[in-house]
Simulated assay, not measured.
Amino acid sequence: MPEPDFLRRGHDPADPSPWLALYLDRSTPLPDHVKRAWLKDSSSASRQYLLPFLRPLARVLIIVIQIVKTFLPRKWSHSRVLHRLLAWGLSRFVSPEANWLILRHFHLGAQILSFIGRNSPAPIETTPLEPMCIADLKDDLFVKHDVNLFNFVIRLNQALQAQGLEMGPPDEVDYGMLREPPLRLQDMPRGRLNVIDIQSAIEVFTPVYQLLLTDNDFWRAANSLQLDETIGIYAAQLLGAPEHLILVNNHHPLIPLSTLRAGHRLVLHGLSTEMLHALLMSRKTGHPPASVTGGHDDAGQDDEAAATAQAQ
């Protein structure tokens, strides 16, 4: 895979690259192949020139659609159409890095919930969603992802309350469910139009999501982003490690925010999930969550092999 521009050009002291600085910085816990893909997508022309126009337009559409939906039936919903449209848009127009990160998110979220559910003082089973390709998203996976999260929080706390228990570190932490997702960047669609970055794609899809779901489904999806702190706190309690709340910043879960910034908050949610998973993997392997490996950009092959070897 070709290297990102900021790695090919290297460091010019007279004109330092902000992307190279972010890539080399180790203060945030991200695996090298994930950070490389994330910054390649973030430094794209799409994000620089397209996102500033799409974001305000998308927020205006959210307001307009909210007004329009006051005149539509309360049960107005076309989830299957929505997911087919999202899968089509992702496969035709969204960058390989963005698609790879989106698919990874389902796997990482499933593993984190499984980690908490299995290590809880009152263990509960989880329902993993692990799409292997974009076509798998057609099975209402975005809605199921949000529903799963709320069901998990409800069932976990019901189990704890029923047994009079509180979250805390177990005698032995089980990391067995944590692994590098079996997804390869080189398998993502690479047509001539696959250039839209992840932030622009999310801004475009948010009003479509709102239009084709009920108000209840859309508000639940937006409010699910408030649970980043909740999941971070659960992990910190199990590990006795408050540093696992690093960069979880969707604000207090008891204060729902406006849906106007749902697209931006969804990007923060995805990055928070990546960082929490990286921290848990570092606990499992005993290695730092990120290391500079130099120039090659296979985005996961070498890291995946290393993670497998460490797990064994």
Rank of each mutant, 00 (worst) to 15 (best):
Asp217His: 13
Arg92Ala: 04
Arg283Thr: 03
Tyr209His: 13
Ser44Val: 00
Arg283Met: 15
Tyr175Pro: 12
Phe115Pro: 12
Val153Met: 14
Leu266Pro: 12
Phe6Thr: 04
Asp139Pro: 07
Met177Ser: 04
Gly232Val: 02
Val173Gly: 12
His83Cys: 10
Leu54Tyr: 15
Leu193Phe: 07
Leu7Met: 15
Asn223Trp: 05
Ala262Lys: 15
Pro289Ala: 00
Pro13Leu: 03
Thr127Lys: 11
Leu213Thr: 08
Leu211Ile: 05
Thr308Cys: 15
Arg261Cys: 02
Thr28Asn: 07
Ala21Thr: 10
Leu82His: 09
Asp174Ile: 01
Gly232Gln: 08
Gly232Cys: 06
Leu85Pro: 13
Pro123Phe: 01
His252Ile: 11
Gln163Leu: 04
Ala135Pro: 13
Leu61Asp: 15
Ile65Glu: 11
Pro96Tyr: 03
Leu22Pro: 14
Leu51His: 10
Asn194Arg: 08
Pro123Trp: 01
Leu245Val: 00
Tyr234Val: 07
Asn194Gln: 09
Val173Ser: 10
His269Phe: 12
Leu61Phe: 08
Leu266Ser: 13
Pro56Val: 02
Thr28Pro: 10
Trp88Thr: 07
Gln310Val: 03
Leu82Ile: 00
Trp88Asn: 06
Ala290Arg: 07
Ala98Pro: 14
Arg104Pro: 12
Ala262Val: 03
Leu90Ala: 05
Ala236Val: 03
Ala58Ile: 04
Arg118Ile: 02
Phe218Trp: 06
Asp25Glu: 09
Glu130Gln: 10
Ala311Ser: 08
His105Ile: 03
Ala122Arg: 03
